[in-house]
């Protein structure tokens, strides 16, 4: 089976600085893969390469068998890849319904309908209501995004990404800024929503090793721009040297 996403020998250099060096990884349908590593290991660069934002210095990035290097977020959004951001991204002056609606419009290919009333489009509003329901935002549809609580903003950010009905979703530290007690709840909502929305594969970038251990099928550890490990959780956490590099000495694992 061809992987959904695959990188072959991908490098990204900024002058003499090698942010990523010869990365070859693959994510298959049905997988939950976590990307971990200390700050500066190249996680963000990898995410930007996977989402077609950056063009690799060397190597290729494939999504569903097509080279997507540098095609840009818009093309990927329509082809079935979505991402969320570490820092919550909202449209301050759009309502919850409008925010999700923007993604639904893309998904249904209606963005060039210049004169048709949005509110009268039942296919759009039905899908908006459905997505909002999955994330528990159905009571907030008419609320301006900037008036939401921090947690609701986060949910909305993710909900709008799911509304693209992606095959792959890339979650960049989805629980940053969420209290430790709530992290598992948020992750459960996200994973449940991913199943409900029919997402084939999830890529999670995360610092929190508990979350990584609980949800991943496979863990890819980056260190100084290279793949340090690409292992299932059992094998991953059995290797103290890897844990040491990834987590540092902060915690007494």
């Amino acid at each position: 089976m061809t992987p959904l996403i695959e990188t072959r020998g991908v490098s990204k250099h900024y002058g003499a600085f090698r942010a990523l060096d010869d990365i070859s990884i693959a994510v298959r349908a049905g997988e939950f893969v976590s990307i971990v590593g200390p700050n500066g290991a190249g996680k963000t660069t990898l995410v930007n390469l996977l989402t077609g934002l950056l063009v690799p210095t060397n190597g290729e990035v494939y999504f569903k068998g097509e080279n997507i290097a540098g095609v840009g977020p818009v093309a990927l959004a329509t082809r079935g890849m979505a991402r969320t951001f570490q820092l919550v991204q909202i449209f301050p002056q759009l309502t919850v319904a409008e925010t999700i609606g923007a993604a639904v419009v893309t998904h249904q290919g209606k963005q060039w309908r210049l004169l048709s009333p949005l509110l009268a489009d039942e296919a759009i509003s039905a899908r908006v209501a459905e997505i909002a329901g999955i994330f528990g935002l159905e009571q907030r549809l008419a609320t301006l995004s900037r008036l939401l609580s921090q947690g609701e903003k986060k949910l909305l950010d993710v909900a709008s990404a799911f509304a693209l009905q992606p095959q792959v979703i890339l979650l960049d530290e989805p629980t940053s800024g969420v209290s430790t007690a709530e992290k598992h709840t948020v992750m459960k909502t996200l994973v449940g929503a991913a199943r409900a929305a029919g997402v084939d594969a999830i890529i999670l970038v995360e610092h929190d090793m508990d979350l990584v251990a609980s949800y991943s099928h496979r863990i890819i550890a980056l260190s100084e721009g290279k793949v340090l490990a690409d292992l299932p959780p059992d094998a991953f956490f059995a290797d103290p040297a890897i844990i040491e590099t990834v987590v540092g000495k902060r915690r007494g694992h």
Binding site: T51, P73, A77, R83, P92, E98, A102
Partner: peptide
Amino acid sequence: RSLRDNAQKALYLGV
């Protein structure tokens, strides 16, 4: 309107 509010986010929603 979405890209007025947040162009980066809009980009990732296919705007």
